[in-house]
Every structure is written in C-alpha cells, then in structure tokens.
Design a protein around this nucleic acid. Structure first.
Lengths: 341, 341
DNA sequence: TTTAGCACTCAATATTCTCGACTGCTAACA
DNA sequence: TGTTAGCAGTCGAGAATATTGAGTGCTAAA
C-alpha cells in the first residue's frame, strides 16, 4: 500500500510537524529531506497519504498535519527508539542509583528525571495496594493512646497509619494484637483486612469495641487509600506553542486536576509495556488534543507504580519513548527492594 | 481626608470590580448604589480618589479600577468579615469534625473545604518540623534488615522513615537503639539530631558503622525533608476572566509549580493572624497580578501548618477572609491532637 | 457643592484590502 | 507510467481604516 518513498515522506512530515508545530508544505519536504524529487511529486504523494487518512489539512490551501492515524503509524512503524544520548544515559544512571529509600521515592526520582530530560510534564502513582501479599503487620505503641499500624508487603511496600484511642493501651495488648493479626494475615493478600477479620479479632481478643473498631477502621482506610499522584513540570507544557490556545491550556489544567482521570489513565496498561494513547484514542474528551505515554515500574507481575508523560499530540515520541525504555530497564535492574533477603 | 461618601464610593467601586471584573464607571455607581447623587458628583469624587492613589484608569476614558493601595484600604478599613452563611458554617463544621487522624490530614481537609466554599485555588503545607520538641523516638524492626524510625513530637506530629541495612539487625539491637536515642533526645528540640548525636551513639553503642550511619542519615533526612505542598482546585482559577490572559495563566502555573516560592509564601506570617498579600506587596514578580491570603493552623505558639488561598488581585476578600477566620477558629477549637493526655 | 450638558478620548469591533504560502490540476516530458 | 514545470485558485494572516459607544473632564449654571 505505502511504498518506501511515501513512508519516508510521512515520517518526514510528522518529524517536521513535531519540530515546528506548523503545517508542513511540499516545498519544505523537498528542501530539507527529498532533494531528488520535485515538490509536485511530493504533493501527489501527500494527496495520496491524505486519502489514506494519515494526513489532514487545516484548510484547503494549507500544508499537511498528521492525523491520529498518521501519528499511530509513525509511532508503530516508522520510528526507531534509540534516541537517547550518552550524556542522558549517564544522567539517568546517576539519578537512579542508590538514592531512594523506598519504592515510592524511587518512582518519584524517576518521574522527575523523565521530565528533566524530555521537558514534558510527567506524572506518577505509587504501587497499587490491592493484590499485594502481607508479609508482616506490626502495631507500635506511641505514647499511651496512639498506635502506629504498619503493613509490609511482599514487594517491599511499607504502609503505615496512625490510630488514636480514647483509653490507654497497654504493651501486652499491643503484643496480643501483633500476634493475632500476623497469625491471621501473614501470607494473605491485603484485601483480607475486611469485616471477617474484624469478627475474628473480636472473637479471639476480648478487647472492647473502643479498641478494636478504630484499628480495623484505620487499617481498612489504609489499604483503600487513594494513591497519591506525583506531578512534575506542569509549567513546561505551558511553554509549548499549542498552549497559546486558552481552550487547550484550560483542558490541560483540568486533566491534571482531576485525580480520578489521572489514576484511570495511569492504572490501565500492562506491566512492562509502554502504553501510548494518542489524542482521542483515550475516550475522555478533555484528552482529545493530548497524548499520554505510560509505563509500569514493576518486578515480575508485581506492580510498583506507574510513570507517565502527558503532552500535546505533537509530542517527541521518539525521545520520550527512548528515554522511557531506558528508565524502565534501569528501574528493573536496579531494583534493590526485592533482592535483599 | 476621605469623607463618608468617598469611602462608600471607593468600597462600591471595589465591590463592583470584584463582582464584574470590568472597570467601573460613574454611571453604574449611581445606578446601583448612590441613587441620590448625580454621576457628575461621583466623577468628581472618583477623580479625587484617583489623585489619592486608590483608583486607576486603564486608559484615559475608561472607568476606574482599584489600585493596590485601593485594595489595601478596602481590606483594612472598608470591609467587615462576617460574610459567611449558616449553610457554610454547617458545612465547615461537618467537614472538620472528627474525621482526621493526623494533623496533616486535618489540614488537608480544611484546605479542600476552603477551596470548595470560596471557589478559589488553595494550598497548604504541613507543620514545620524545626523547633518541635521530641516526645518519643521509636525504632521498629521490619523483617531482618529494615527498620522504621518514628519520631513523635509535642504537637502530636508523627514522622517516620524507612532505614535499610546490608546486614541483619537483632531485636536486642533495636531495644538498645530505642533506649539510647530516647535517653539522649526526649524533651529536646528535633534539631538535636545532628553530628554530635552521631558521636554519642557511636561512643555508647559499639555497633558497626554500617548500622549507625544509615540510621543517622535517614533521621537527619527525615527532619530536613521538604514539606509537602497540598494543592486544591487549580482548575477553579482558570475559570476566572483574568485567566483569559495567557501571560497571567502561565505565571499562575509557574507559581504553583515552584515549590520554593510556595513554601516561602506559606512560611512567612505569624501564628493565628490572617496574612494578606496584595499584588506586588509580595516581591516576587510572577505574583504581581495575584493576591495571597494565608493563615496558620496552630496551637499556642506551635505551628501545625499553613493554609492559603491564591487568586487574582480582584479576589472576594470579604468571603475569603470571613471563611478563613471561621475555619481558623474551628481548627483551634477542635484540636484533638493536644488535648488527649 | 452639586449638577446638566457637551466635547473629547480611546478601546473594541467590524470591514476591507493585500499578500503570499499553499494546493490541485493540466499538459508535457523521460 | 511516473515525474515535473507551470499556473490558476484558495484562503488565512496581518495591515489599514472606519465605526461605534462607553467613558471621562470640564464649564457654567443652580
């Protein structure tokens, strides 16, 4: 269907549009890329590419702009993802090495680094709590009327919460709590912290409701807790020419501000794969002028969080995806959090 | 200097400008507020008010707009701060009651509520760690090679960190750590966690550097940790007419994106007072078109965090400050975090 | 001190014009 | 059959101009 030259021209048009944000004319293609053929030939090919749905015009006598289908073809078949320099590799290595003390922090560092190198807005969420296996539960007495409840999971995730009481708690009570909770929950998925657990604890320990209830409540809250979204470089997007459109700028702020939407975007997609959503491929209409590229930080099938870039459809996919691939690889290699014991 | 009528007219002009975002003409003042006098009279007074620096014109034949000095006069002398309805009071009470399990969470809830009621963008930071008094330090063993270090301070603030080791830690070691750390630090300001502490621990405990060093490092990191900024309703600002100016919108995103600046704004100001910065009263030039209103959530002289509103200079100060005053009062009343023991 | 009245100012909007960057098409050419 | 030169036609962008009307300031009279 597409001969070599048309594929080249398509790629060149997308490259050029990504670089300049201006509709691309046959003349610049000849000038910059295809000095052997005439602009008329390019025009013929462009007309063809438009008929096939890869290109669009903004008006009858304008140059061409890639369509969503054009971007998709570009991303899937025309690009190579080795667009990363030695300096960038070094920089990433340095940033990711050793400095993080928790999975969440490592994810944050990676998110910041990604934004620094690509100059796009990046976002991330920590690991999903659901599905994780409880390795240890610990209650710690702080003062007389406060406990800290700590859950450690198999992926090295540590979650903790404060629990307050109206009466004093004794050290023995804490020991018993630790015993029964671990007895019941070690090796179990975190979802087991539920109503039936409450029953069990009530049955085994004869503590007052005033003690059991807040504990169960807080622990449930802890595992259901909405994940925190980490955002980096929102202002970088505002430097891009597409943000001259107030409409777009507003949509962008709306998107970033809507936690559910962000979580939704970040939580779809499979482990290790880089996911690319171009414009209206994402069915939220605020997103129609943006592209989102995400990947999961994971070990095996264990989700350790997701990192994403959000920017205009006219995004430098080559750079973005190249850098992501490298960071993704490094994150998995470097993973200190599971190789300890 | 300003007779009663001029003061009224000034207040009316600011009110009107806050409501409409359009320069205010002598005619509308007569129409809406001063039916007894003629527009010519109002014009004379306006000319006077302009000469005194309270009003400005956008061009020679335009209506008047408040100057920074005008806003200042308005805020300091012309407003009453009882602009809060029974429903709003109820709503705030409901939100602030009982639901928070930590100071930080309570501050977040207050921040969200403030944004919901005022429809402005709100921000907050948690309590400053520095200056707090250590009530208890606790190390908890998680697995064999991981500790959680927990600090509880006199204001009820709980900070915790994960510490990882390359060798196994024993329960006895943890006990000793707890003993020596508490021995040295209980009742001391949190800044005492420093180099001299490291020496002391080294001297008293003969543990290997491999154990002491990471602990001290993490604890130091914990108390120096940059406070988290909590942001709510950034998109609300973008609905305001001033954000039609791309310039302004960009500045706004820049401000919100610059953590140091936000922290700077939130950390100045004194306990309990409501601080108002109008336009260039704040010396950062990105802020020249915005106003910031902040207050501290505090108990006695103990800082529990700061909450602020950031919006256009043409802000509904009456509503904003009335609501803030009420929330501030409620936060201090409700304070569960110090009345326990 | 207040007011009616009028001349004047100036932003905002609409209107028209011009320019030139494009394309598509045709006809000739390799 | 694919390529190309050449030209007519399209249309957005920007400049130049005109029009409107919401304002003011000032003067002179009440």
């Amino acid at each position: 269907m597409l001969d070599e030259r048309k594929r080249n021209i398509l790629k060149e048009i997308v490259d050029e549009y990504i670089a300049t944000a201006e509709p691309v004319s046959s003349a610049v293609i000849v000038e910059k890329y295809e000095s052997n053929i005439s602009s008329a030939t390019v025009r013929n090919d462009m007309a063809e590419l438009e008929k096939l749905g890869y290109l669009e015009k903004t008006h009858a006598s304008s140059g061409r702009v890639p369509s969503a289908k054009g971007y998709r073809m570009y991303v899937d078949e025309l690009l190579k993802y080795d667009n990363i320099s030695l300096e960038e590799i070094k920089y990433i290595q340095e940033k990711l090495e050793n400095k993080a003390d928790s999975i969440e922090e490592l994810t944050k560092i990676a998110t910041t680094t990604l934004s620094e190198i690509t100059h796009y807005t990046t976002v991330s969420v920590g690991p999903k709590t659901s599905g994780q296996i409880i390795e240890e539960i610990k209650f710690v007495l702080l003062g007389n009327r406060m406990l800290m409840g700590i859950i450690v999971t198999d992926t090295g995730l540590v979650k903790e919460t404060i629990i307050k009481f109206d009466e004093d708690i004794t050290a023995e009570q804490v020991d018993t709590l630790n015993y029964y909770f671990n007895n019941k929950l070690q090796g179990e998925p975190i979802e087991k912290i539920d109503a039936s657990l409450e029953e069990y604890i009530f049955r085994e320990l004869k503590y007052s409701v005033k003690i059991i209830r807040p504990i169960i409540e807080q622990m449930k809250k802890l595992i259901q807790e909405e994940e925190n979204i980490y955002l980096e470089g929102a202002n970088k997007s505002f430097e891009l020419p597409e943000f001259k459109s107030l409409e777009l700028a507003k949509n962008f702020v709306n998107i970033l501000d809507t936690k559910e939407l962000m979580l939704d975007i970040l939580n779809t997609g499979f482990a290790e794969d880089i996911q690319i959503y171009i414009g209206d491929e994402n069915d939220n209409k605020d997103l129609k002028d943006f592209s989102v590229v995400t990947f999961k930080h994971s070990v095996g099938d264990k989700d350790l969080g997701t990192i994403g870039i959000i920017g205009p459809k006219r995004m430098n996919y080559s750079k973005v995806i190249s850098v992501m691939k490298y960071i993704s690889k490094k994150l998995n290699e470097n993973d200190n959090f599971n190789k300890k014991d």
